[in-house]
Design a protein around this nucleic acid. Structure first.
Length: 575
DNA sequence: GCCGTTTTCGGCCCGACTGTTTTCAGTCG
């Protein structure tokens, strides 16, 4: 069982405890434990086998026993026991906004409602407003909630939302009344998917800005509009909020709305222990009762005597402890990147020529760019035969002679075949500057098979980088059932670099695996996997993911100078 | 149920909104 699955069991337990009306602190304990496991870099099975379960934050004796049960038996007897103690289906009511555990239980007890459909019927028949403490409004809101639930759009990949968000920001920024415009929420934390977008800014004329916002061409529907805040829906269903806030508490508000919720809870708990109460309006000294509104986020953290914690690691997964101990990482940044190590061109399935790609990379300030078109086995992507590959080398040599500021590296994204062999002969691989290996077929193999297959490929002395290691496509394909703990260890031992692919629907490795890779001393390449010039911009999502994984400059090989990188790549050739 | 450089017991983030209430519980972010 992987971390997500164990976390899900704990969350399910918490949900049922809520319905049963248990102490909210007991419920929170399970939720916090679930969070810990979901976000910790280590593999939960591994930690269990080493006997360190209760070293995990928020896991004590009781929850450790339940986690052990889950890992031993693949299911939780405690959860099963709980499920039997409540009527089935009642949890489904919690999905309706406005309905929490208390209401759900009453609806069941007093009206026998245990699914969304019977809830809808009861509301339409006006049976809900007959209940004590519930009225006409409640009933209407339930119907509205059900409608919203059935029509709600799924979370969008970060990079897809980004195109829209940036267009909106650009238009708003043209307005002279707009100041300090910033996107907060999970978008700012670079979470791989976003549910809605929260934009915040200051202005001396808030109403003008709100008017401008709601009149933007990208706005499909105005959901709510006030004097300082508006909510709209874009055409693709994405909900966007804009709020204009007082300048003097911008920092406090940004901190609050950037989250994550868990980070804020932990920060506020920590603040309490230091005698401060933190809210979105400022920081209150509990003894004196004085509240200081913070203009900047830096101020929020510094009053608490903490270094600034970057948004990407505000996940409630150890960052506050690290900050207290002075052990926050110096996160890798976009400007540290010296080159891109995974790109395509019109030679295979890309849409820009080598020269266009090279010039665009130079424009971005890169000093090198690896050309890694597909290998012949990937017919659908016009994979390059050996003959065509050699022709491509000629063009690369020619460009390298002509272009001053950038060096093109001869590379290939080589298919990893079913048996773990690579789709180009070793003699050719040997001549390449850089070799990426990737799986593009047979993705549904069993965990053992696919893990062994990938590790076999990694043993090939010419393989430099394992590209998009888990193969997930956000929203459309689950990751392979691959044992990443083993793959990361193999990467360290065999000096194979693991990739963070910045394509918006990949972001693969994700932050958690990246953090584990760093812990185990594996090296990472952050790449765009661009198929045309504009795709080079996906690097920033890769960098964001690297930052979510606590990676520092030295962990990321494409922050190195070309000479150093080449030395690392070439050391393989003798192994 | 977890946690502790004030604590092994007594705490556990903060505030807004909503609806139905005469003072607040439930829900949400």
């Amino acid at each position: 069982m992987n971390n997500e699955q164990v976390a899900e069991v704990l969350n399910d337990i918490a949900e049922i405890l809520e319905i049963k009306g248990e102490s909210k602190y007991r419920i929170r304990a399970y939720q916090q434990a679930a969070r810990s496991i979901e976000f910790m870099p280590e593999d939960i099975e591994q930690v269990y086998h080493e006997g360190h379960l209760d070293d995990i934050p928020y896991i004590g004796k009781s929850i450790a026993a339940k986690v052990a049960d889950v890992l031993e038996h693949g299911r939780s007897s405690y959860l099963e026991e709980l499920e039997e103690s409540i009527p089935p289906g009642i949890e489904s009511l919690l999905q309706v906004p406005g309905i929490g555990p208390k209401t759900a239980v009453r609806l069941y007890q007093e009206l026998g409602i245990d699914n969304i459909e019977s809830l809808r019927i009861a509301a339409e028949e006006h049976r809900i407003q007959q209940l004590r403490g519930m009225g006409k409004k409640t009933e209407e809101n339930i119907l509205k909630g059900i409608k919203w639930l059935l029509g709600k759009s799924p979370r969008l990949p970060l990079g897809v939302a980004a195109i829209l968000v940036e267009r909106i920001l650009e238009q708003l920024r043209r307005d002279p009344f707009v100041r300090n415009l910033v996107v907060v929420g999970s978008y700012r934390r670079m979470k791989p998917t976003v549910g809605d977008i929260d934009i915040m800014g200051t202005s001396d004329h808030p109403e003008t800005v709100i008017d401008l916002f709601t009149a933007l061409p990208d706005v499909d529907r105005i959901m709510a509009k006030g004097t300082t805040k508006a909510t709209v829906l874009a055409e693709n269903g994405l909900q966007i909020d804009l709020r204009i806030v007082p300048h003097e508490s911008l920092g406090s508000l940004m901190q609050h709305f950037t989250g994550s919720k868990e980070h804020n809870v932990q920060l506020r708990e920590y603040a309490l222990s230091k005698g401060f109460s933190v809210s979105e309006y400022g920081i209150t000294n509990i003894k004196t009762g004085w509240r200081i509104p913070c203009t900047t986020e830096e101020q929020v953290y510094s009053i608490l005597e903490l270094p600034y914690i970057p948004p990407e690691i505000r996940q409630g997964s150890g960052e506050i402890g690290a900050a207290v101990a002075g052990k926050l990482p110096m996160l890798v940044a976009q400007q540290d990147i010296c080159g891109d190590l995974h790109t395509h061109s019109i030679w295979s399935d890309g849409r820009s020529s080598l020269e266009e790609m090279a010039l665009a990379a130079e424009e971005k300030g890169y000093s090198y760019l690896a050309v890694t078109d597909h290998s012949p086995g990937l017919g659908i992507a016009h994979g390059l035969s050996v003959e065509r590959l050699r022709l491509q080398w000629r063009e690369i040599d020619d460009l390298n002679n002509r272009l001053e500021g950038i060096t093109l590296l001869k590379g290939s994204e080589v298919d990893i075949r079913a048996d773990g062999s690579l789709d180009l002969p070793d003699e050719i691989l040997k001549e390449l500057d850089i070799v990426l290996g990737a799986i593009h077929s047979g993705m549904r193999e069993s965990s053992d098979l696919i893990t062994e297959r990938v590790i076999r490929a990694m043993r090939n002395p010419y393989l430099n980088i394992l590209a998009h290691p888990t193969g997930r496509l956000i929203g459309s394909r689950e990751p392979y059932d691959i044992d990443m703990e083993k793959v990361i260890k193999a990467a360290t031992d065999l000096k194979v670099i693991l990739e963070i692919d910045g394509t918006p629907d990949r972001l693969d490795l994700d932050g958690r695996h990246a953090r584990r890779a760093k812990e185990l001393n594996a090296k990472i390449a952050v790449s765009s996997d661009a198929h045309q010039v504009s795709g080079l911009n996906n690097m920033r999502f890769g960098v964001g993911t690297a930052r979510r994984g606590w990676l520092e400059k030295r962990d990321v090989v494409n922050t190195w100078e070309l000479k150093e990188l080449q030395a690392f790549l070439n050391q393989h050739k003798g192994k």
